[in-house]
């Protein structure tokens, strides 16, 4: 927790300091005439990056979780093969390809990236939620039904709490994926921390590339750290939940 807050604070300080470190960038990249990124404020880029990635992850989590719950109900069994099939197809299409294909339909900007984000982030959430719900022991479900719990109560009080660690692991994968895909979305005109990378690459400005890359990577590490917090193995054992992805 303290580690996370410290890291976050350091990140924000670095974002604020980056435009004022002209001497550093100049020293690192002596051949570049405008080494300081000043087209947009770093905080504006961060805000847009987070809005895109978090918003998409939230939508994706809702979609993925609903699909997983549906697919694990007796009535939704028919959904299983479709989800499997979508998952393996998505594996063959890299996110950048999905963004590129959506681009002619939706135009430059955040929209194609958002679409690809939601599509790709929903899959790990769905996958892990199906795995987690499947892993709830049959005996526990039998006992729950035998004590007279209704299907809704069993889902809310037994299945979801038991599957939570596995779902959380899927959520973490989804968020990390979303942050990475958002950065790539800069290519299609989404404004985010990837923008300096893409602009820098287009203009041969390695200083911008480096700054964008550092902050993008840093953000991903922080997000990962934040979502790991809920997965503390000590806590997991003490409340007797299933371990994720065994």
């Amino acid at each position: 927790m303290i580690l996370l807050l410290g890291n976050l604070l350091l990140f924000l300080v670095a974002l604020a300091a980056a435009p004022r470190l002209g001497w550093l960038w100049q020293a690192l990249f002596p051949g570049i005439s405008r080494p300081v990124w000043d087209s947009q404020s770093w905080f504006a880029l961060l805000a847009e990056h987070l809005m895109l990635a978090l918003g998409a992850t939230l939508i994706a989590a809702l979609i993925g979780l609903s699909a997983a719950i549906l697919a694990t109900r007796p009535a939704g069994r028919a959904l299983r093969p479709l989800l499997d099939s979508m998952f393996s197809l998505a594996q063959a299409v890299p996110p950048i390809a999905a963004i590129a294909l959506a681009l002619p339909l939706m135009g430059f900007g955040a929209a194609p990236t958002l679409l690809a984000l939601v599509l790709y982030a929903a899959l790990p959430v769905m996958r892990s939620a199906v795995a987690g719900l499947d892993a709830v022991p049959a005996a526990v479900l039998d006992a729950a039904r035998g004590t007279g719990m209704g299907p809704g109560r069993i889902l809310a009080q037994i299945e979801l709490p038991l599957a939570l660690p596995v779902i959380q692991a899927g959520l973490r994968v989804a968020l990390v994926l979303a942050i990475a895909t958002t950065a790539v979305g800069a290519v299609a005109g989404a404004r985010c921390l990837g923008t300096p990378i893409v602009t820098g690459l287009a203009n041969g400005n390695l200083s911008w590339v480096l700054q964008g890359a550092v902050f993008t990577a840093w953000l991903a590490v922080i997000a990962d750290q934040a979502l790991r917090l809920g997965l503390d193995p000590e806590r997991r054992r003490s409340n007797g939940r299933l371990a994720p992805a065994r």
């Binding site: 022991p137 005996a139 526990v140 479900l141 039998d142 006992a143 729950a144 039904r145 035998g146 004590t147 007279g148 719990m149 209704g150 037994i158 709490p161 038991l162 409340n239 007797g240 939940r241 299933l242």
Partner: peptide, 21 residues
């Protein structure tokens, strides 16, 4: 009604099925 019926009947199984959390 199945749920109401089950609340009035005790049920014990081999694998116990205690709620682990």
């Amino acid at each position: 009604e199945p749920e109401a019926l089950r609340r009035g009947i005790g049920y014990v199984i081999q694998s116990v099925g205690l709620f682990p959390h």
